[in-house]
Design a protein around this nucleic acid. Structure first.
Lengths: 241, 241
DNA sequence: TATAAAAACTGACGAAAAGCAGTTAATTTA
DNA sequence: TAAATTAACTGCTTTTCGTCAGTTTTTATA
C-alpha cells in the first residue's frame, strides 16, 4: 500500500529533533533589524540562482559572505582527502556560513552545494559583522540560531558515533519526513552515496540497509521515491540504536 | 628514553586544531563588559569548589547557569542509555553551558563533570542573557566563542566518523599534549574508559591501541603517565586516518 | 534514439573493532 | 594493613561493515 501525500501522522518532532540532520529556521532574524540596517543588507547583498548540483562555496576558501537560502535545498559538508561528511541539510530560509564569523580564522570551515535549483542571497560578511556589533537584539538572535544548529550537530554526532547502521538510517529517514518534506512520502533528492556521507556509511551499506527496511515492511522505495510505512517501528530502531 | 618536561617541540597547532577535542579560550570576554555590568555578574554569580569526579550539571535538567571554569579540567559529554560521548574537554577560563542560551529549549543539552578539583563560577543565565541583549560587543565575542567551539566539534565529528582507531587515538594524544598539558609528557587524568568515550571506541580497544603505539615506539606509557616519543609519526597517523 | 556515463544494486570476502570472560594490578575503604 | 572494589589488561570469538568486482538500471548526451 503506497500512500501519496498522506495526511501527516508524523512522529513527534521533539523526539526526533535530537538525531536529525536537518536544519530549519522558523525564527526571523531580518525583522529584528532597523530600517536603515535592512537597507544596508539589501545594498550589500546579491541574490544568485544556483542550479541543482552547483557548489556554493568551498571549504578552506576565504569567507566573504553569509548565505541566506531563500529557496532550495543544500548540503553543508566537510571534505578531506576522499572522505566527505555531510554536516546538515538546509532548506528554505536558512542562514548559512555563520561559522565563519570568527575573528581568528577567516577560512570557511565547510563546503556548501545544492541539491535542487536554489536562490541564495549572499551577504557581505564585513557588513554582517558590523550589524552584529551594533545591534544586540540581532546578535542575540544569531546566538540562538547558532545554538539551535549546535544542538542538531550534537544529536548527529551522537547518532553517527554511537549507533549502528540500522539506527542511523532510521534517524535520517525520520528526519527527512518530519523536517524537510513534512510528509511520509517523498522523493529523495540525494543519491545513495550522499546518504552514505550523511549517515557515515558506505554506499553499498546504504543500499543493503534500505533493502532490509523494505523487506521488513518499514519503508517502501522505488528508486528515489520513499514512503515510510511503519514510523513507530522506525522510531524504535532509532532509539534502540 | 623518557623526557621529563621537555622543551616543547610540539606539533604546529594549526594542523592539529581541527581534530582536537580540547577547548581553550585565550579571548577574554569579561573585559568587554562595562563596570556596572561586571558588577552585575559578580552579584549574580557564585564560585563553587568541585572535587575531582563530581557532576557539575546533568543533561536534560533545566538550564539555570552559565559556567565559568576558573580552574580545573572538566568533560562536557552526552549520555543516553548506556552510551556516553565526550564532546570536549575544557580547561581553565572556559565558558561552558553557552548552548543553553536558546529561547526554544531551556534544557541542558549535555552533562559536565570534573576530572580534577575545580573552581567553577556559576552565573545566572537570565542575567547573562540580559547582558547579551544589551551589550553587542559582548555578544559578538560570545558568537566568536561559540564558533570556535563549533569548529572544534566539526573536527572531532570528522575524526570520529571518518578515521579508524589508530587515527582517532593519535588525534586525541596530540591534542592533549598541545592543548591541555603543553608538554610531550603528561599524566592522564582520564581512565581508559573515558578515552573510549572521547574517541568513540571500546575500553578494550583503547588499551589495545595504546599497547600497539607503545610497541611501535610512538609513545611510552606506564599506567597514567604518557610520553609522546615520535610526534611526527603520530601526526602522520592522524592525517592518514 | 543510440550510446555513453553515472547510479543503483548484488554477492563474496576480509578487515576492523566490539563483546565476552577471565586475570592481574592498582585504589579505596573498613 | 587486609579486604573489597575498581581499573587495567589479555586472548578469543563474533559481529559489523567496508571493499572489491562485478551486473543491471537509470540518466544524460551526442
Amino acid at each position: 500500500m503506497i500512500l501519496y501525500f498522506c495526511q501527516m501522522n508524523l512522529p513527534d518532532e521533539s523526539r526526533v529533533n535530537n538525531h536529525c540532520s536537518i536544519f530549519e529556521f522558523e525564527q526571523s532574524w531580518f525583522d529584528l533589524l532597523k530600517d536603515d540596517e535592512k537597507q544596508l543588507i539589501e545594498e550589500h547583498s546579491v541574490s544568485l540562482a544556483f542550479k541543482k548540483g552547483e557548489t556554493v562555496c568551498k571549504q578552506g576558501a576565504f569567507a566573504s559572505h553569509i548565505f541566506f537560502l531563500e529557496e532550495g535545498l543544500v548540503k553543508v559538508y566537510l571534505e578531506e582527502r576522499n572522505n566527505s561528511l555531510i554536516l546538515t541539510l538546509s532548506t528554505n530560509h536558512s542562514l548559512l556560513g555563520l561559522s565563519s564569523i570568527f575573528e581568528g580564522n577567516n577560512k570557511l570551515p565547510y563546503s556548501i552545494s545544492t541539491y535542487t535549483d536554489s536562490k541564495i542571497r549572499m551577504i557581505d560578511i564585513q557588513m554582517f559583522k558590523q550589524l552584529l556589533k551594533q545591534n544586540s537584539d540581532f546578535s542575540f538572535r544569531i546566538i540562538n540560531i547558532l545554538n539551535e544548529s549546535t544542538a542538531q550537530i550534537y544529536g548527529r554526532f551522537f547518532s553517527l558515533t554511537q549507533k549502528q547502521l540500522h539506527g542511523r538510517l532510521a534517524d535520517i529517514l525520520l528526519c527527512m519526513a518530519t523536517r524537510i518534506f513534512k510528509s511520509k512520502t517523498f522523493e529523495l533528492p540525494l543519491s545513495r552515496a550522499d546518504l552514505g556521507d550523511l549517515t557515515g556509511m558506505s554506499t553499498e551499506s546504504v543500499i543493503r540497509m534500505m533493502k532490509e527496511f523494505k523487506d521488513d515492511g518499514l519503508i517502501d522505495i522505488q528508486c528515489k521515491n520513499v514512503v515510510l510505512l511503519d514510523i513507530a517501528r522506525l522510531e524504535r530502531i532509532s532509539n534502540f540504536g
